[in-house]
């Protein structure tokens, strides 16, 4: 038996990869455990864009994520990412282009007609995708149930795969919180079909379509463990960025706001860590949906090859 602790994106991906290999798996979420940070994720599968600040390993390995998700959940939209910048920050686009690969220069309005007349040029990352993270996690849970994986809040009965996110700080002293804030809006007047990233020297943001005129706007990055609600500043920054992309966002209804804490290691890279006979899958930072599947597969491979561990 393998006991996966935590049912955020890391836990669900790990349980899925293990159960698919025929291992017997349980998922444990203790009572009173905080909601997983993954609930608030953008759901972007954007390895190339992440390369702007993430090292090559995220770009290279993250490319497998879209196929992994598409094989297991509904709603993976493969329409790429469009990156734009306000005219006065055009130099940011050139920097982004130099820092990333997998893109072509594009006329934004040709990809997203709604952006007509607003941005002269943009970068198009054709091989990226997005999805609704909560729907995707619900599908993974359903898939796990079909594979006979039990979810409970009792004591673990097997090898522990610890995917508790920030709660694992009790065993991972170098795990820290990076606060993120996001908004969900309903903007039926706006018809964007793919993720749009707005580059800005101070308030970069992305807008992810969630279907039916709903959009997720994210996300701040604050080096803080404060878990309270979104700040007015974050709302102002995110909304003004969204407004820059499309003025009709001014008429949007703000349907939800969220603030969560991303678990991160000092190098901001998700990792598998051995800790006695416990294995951690943690430090998802802002790469959970991108890197959890990759690391989950690696972990499952490890456990298959070392059956002694998986008693």
């Amino acid at each position: 038996m393998i006991s996966v602790l935590g049912a955020g994106v890391a836990g669900l991906c790990a349980a899925t990869a293990l159960a698919e290999r025929g291992l017997s798996v349980e998922v444990i979420v203790p009572e009173g455990a905080p909601d997983p940070a993954s609930n608030l994720a953008g759901g972007m599968l954007a390895p190339f864009c992440e390369g702007e600040s993430a090292p090559e390993v995220v770009v290279a390995r993250g490319q497998a994520a879209a196929d992994w998700w598409a094989a297991r959940v509904r709603g993976v939209v493969r329409r790429g990412t469009l990156v734009v910048a306000p005219p006065r920050d055009a130099a940011e686009l050139d920097r982004f282009a130099r820092a990333t690969r997998g893109h072509v220069w594009a006329t934004p309005a040709e990809l997203e007609p709604e952006l007509e007349g607003r941005f002269a040029r943009g970068l198009y990352f054709a091989d990226e995708a997005h999805m609704d993270p909560r729907a995707a996690m619900a599908d993974l849970r359903a898939g796990l149930a079909e594979l006979g994986v039990a979810f409970h809040c009792g004591a673990p009965s097997g090898l522990i795969v610890d995917c508790r996110g920030l709660s694992a700080q009790d065993r991972l002293p170098d795990l820290r919180a990076v606060r993120g804030e996001m908004l969900e809006v309903s903007a039926p007047d706006v018809a964007l079909t793919r993720t749009v990233r707005l580059l800005h020297p101070r308030f970069p943001c992305y807008i992810v379509p969630r279907g039916d005129g709903r959009y997720m706007i994210g996300a701040t990055m604050v080096e803080s463990a404060r878990s309270g609600p979104v700040t007015a500043r974050a709302v102002m920054e995110l909304l003004s960025a969204a407004y820059t992309v499309h003025p009709a966002f001014a008429e949007a209804e703000v349907t939800a706001t969220g603030a969560g804490l991303r678990p991160a290691f000092p190098d901001n890279l998700p990792a598998i860590r051995q800790d006695g006979d416990r294995i951690h899958l943690n430090g998802m930072y802002r790469h959970g949906f991108l890197m959890a599947p990759v690391l989950a597969e690696e972990l499952a491979q490890m456990l298959i090859q070392e059956p002694a561990h998986a008693d």
């Binding site: 820290r176 919180a177 604050v222 080096e223 803080s224 463990a225 404060r226 500043r233 000092p266």
Partner: peptide
């Protein structure tokens, strides 16, 4: 200003 008292982890680094 933004990180506040709970930005300890980063400041320790």
């Amino acid at each position: 200003r933004r990180e506040g008292a709970q930005g300890t982890a980063f400041r320790e680094l």
